[in-house]
């Protein structure tokens, strides 16, 4: 059976029951895109909004309730909040660059793979660093702001360091697993599509 024999048939075919009226098209234009990248962008806006509100409130409440003792904590909360915003900004920037539907199909897929891998690396790095960072900040506050209990001797600091190392290791492997679970299949599918361009 020859493909060329079906060119005329193909052109004359009208997708039955699939005609879309102008009114239906207008309704479609009001809808939000459901593509994964569009949804990820919307999630980031929500998360960033939540970080701004929650961290600002926490810092303010902390400052006004305990101005003498916890000003440092407020500053730390603000610093973590600003770092969080940079994290969302960077993710959003990568997502915005990730897709170019007007580009050639091959270059669009290439761009998606490259930037998604960059996005994953950043996500993995940020996720892995977050746990030890929070641990260190908490440790700093406990050591400097709480009454002297437990005693701050050498064994305390060794124990603190050992827990920190274990937590960092756990955070690394947990993040590795989670990132692979979230994006592994997606990247593999994109790579598979790209490989179809080079198939001999």
């Amino acid at each position: 059976m020859e493909l060329d024999n079906f060119k005329d048939t193909w052109k004359e075919m009208v997708p039955g029951e699939m005609k879309t009226s102008k009114e239906e098209l207008l309704v479609m234009l009001q809808q939000k895109s459901q593509r994964p990248i569009a949804r990820m962008k919307r999630n980031i806006y929500w998360e960033a909004g939540a970080v701004i509100v929650l961290y600002s409130l926490a810092a303010l409440m902390n400052y006004f309730l305990n101005p003498m003792f916890f000003a440092e904590m407020s500053i730390m909360l603000l610093v973590i909040g600003v770092l969080g915003l940079y994290y969302y900004y960077r993710k959003l920037k990568l997502l915005k660059e990730m897709e170019c539907v007007q580009c050639e199909v091959k270059s669009n897929l290439n761009r998606q793979v490259t930037l998604l891998e960059k996005y994953i690396r950043f996500y993995f790095f940020a996720g892995t660093v977050l746990a030890p960072l929070v641990y260190l900040v908490s440790g700093y506050l406990i050591i400097n702001k709480l009454p002297v209990y437990p005693p701050r001797d050498a064994s305390f600091y060794i124990l603190f360091a050992v827990f920190g190392i274990i937590l960092t290791g756990l955070s690394y492997y947990l993040n590795k697993w989670y990132v692979a679970k979230l994006y592994g299949q997606h990247v593999a599918q994109l790579r598979n599509l790209l490989s179809q361009f080079d198939e001999e």
């Binding site: 170019c100 539907v101 007007q102 580009c103 669009n108 897929l109």
Partner: peptide, 17 residues
């Protein structure tokens, strides 16, 4: 331009694949 957008949207829709 139109084919690019339509095919890019269809091909990279991995959920439906």
């Amino acid at each position: 331009w139109m084919y690019r957008i339509a095919l890019n949207t269809a091909i990279s829709d991995l959920r439906r694949q």
